[in-house]
Amino acid sequence: MPWIPRDARRRGASLHEALRPMLVAAQVFALMPVEGLRQASPASLRYLQRPTEHILARLFNVVHAYECSPGGLSWLQLYLANEFPSAYHYIGFSYWTSAWLATINTAATFSWNYMDLFLILISLALADRFEHFNQDIARVFDRAVPQKIWQRIRENYCSLAHLAHATNARINKIVLLSFTTNLYFICYQLLNMVIPVMLPSIYSPYCYPESSSFHFSLNPSMLEMVYRCWSFAYLVARTCAVSLSAARVYEKSHEPKRLLFLVHPKSYGVEVQRLLDQINSDEIALTGFNFFSITRTFMLTVAGTIVTYEIVLVQFNNVSNAQESNMANKTFCSFEYY
């Protein structure tokens, strides 16, 4: 794998050594607070109990809030009210509450990103194990070798299959959470990009005061459109990265079949046939809580689901144009001082 240091690849790096650069990078974002990453054995890892901080700038919301602000620190209240409108509806506005919500939101955002990174690394590491196994078969499949060699190869495959099933049993809930979350936010961001085009009448290009409320412009600025496009592209790219990495496990685990059909006639025997039968019958793939298996064709299913739901959402918004307009003018556009 290209992200493993060259010297570690030469001596046969362990999974702990292979994941070390990414674990160090995760600590920058207050994730995986452990010590002992530079030790040779993962048994030396210890969790750290110390607070960490990170500031996540939401630039386009700050700019909008500043433009709508009448002056002073009112822009901060407008910004916070736009960030957590549902929460303030139930618990009321305060700066202490805002700080608490912002901390939770930041931690959740980085945990969400790291969850996908974790799945990518685990998938690549597991697929790399199968790749080494395939290389072992490629070295002997066209030669006459004793059955003991093929017995050892079959036993190695059994060990890898057990490792793959055990790994899937540990992370299949994370896989399900990752795909459902990414699917939701892809549809959400795509809808945010489509609605200004489909329903331009509900967007007002101005911020203006009305009694005790300040109305927030819904007309997307260039900064906001850049953010929406970048966020959508980033979500799609990250979902594709997770899908392709996880699908690589399925592909590499089934790759030996092609070579086993080409085994040297003098080597073909019971062990080769048992190995071939096991590969054909054993479904090795990462799953989303066993609801679905991640393969390349699964990506097409996800893409079709996104398109279907987006069409439904756009049609729903077209039908309820008047209701959306009223809601935008009364609720979504306005920020009240609590």
Rank of each mutant, 00 (worst) to 15 (best):
I91C: 00
Y250S: 10
M225E: 00
A13M: 00
T331W: 13
V226L: 08
R11S: 10
A144W: 09
V302I: 10
S281M: 13
N61P: 01
L160A: 02
I306L: 13
V24I: 15
F232G: 02
T301A: 15
Y184P: 01
H89Q: 10
L37G: 07
F232M: 11
V307L: 14
T97Q: 07
V242K: 04
V242P: 05
A25Y: 09
A247N: 03
A81R: 02
W100A: 13
F185T: 09
F141I: 01
W112M: 12
G92A: 05
S245F: 01
N321W: 09
F130E: 00
E283I: 15
E131Q: 12
V270N: 13
G304H: 07
R154E: 08
F335R: 10
I122C: 07
L15P: 04
V312E: 08
Q323T: 11
Q189K: 12
Q27C: 03
Y66M: 06
P70T: 04
Q151L: 04
L73V: 07
Y206F: 15
L190C: 01
I186C: 00
T109F: 14
A161D: 04
T295F: 04
S41T: 12
K330D: 10
E324M: 13
V263L: 03
I120E: 03
L218Q: 15
P85T: 02
H64E: 14
S212D: 11
F84H: 03
Y309M: 14
A247F: 04
A65E: 00
Y88R: 00
T297K: 07
E255K: 06
M115K: 07
V194I: 05
Q315Y: 12
E255C: 06
I104S: 10
A107K: 09
L73R: 15
W96G: 13
S243F: 03
Q323M: 04
N105E: 10
F289K: 09
A166I: 00
L244H: 09
N105Q: 09
M32G: 07
E324R: 15
Q135T: 07
F130I: 06
E83C: 01
S44G: 14
M198C: 08
F298H: 08
Y203G: 14
L80Q: 05
L48T: 13
G36T: 07
Q39C: 13
H254Y: 09
K148A: 10
F179V: 01
L78M: 02
A99N: 08
F141L: 06
R274N: 11
G92Y: 00
A108L: 14
L176R: 10
A25P: 03
A161G: 11
I153R: 02
Q315T: 12
V24S: 11
Q151C: 02
H162L: 14
F291K: 05
M32L: 13
L260P: 01
Q278W: 08
T52D: 08
P51R: 12
I202K: 04
M327Y: 12
L59N: 06
M193C: 11
N317H: 10
S86A: 14
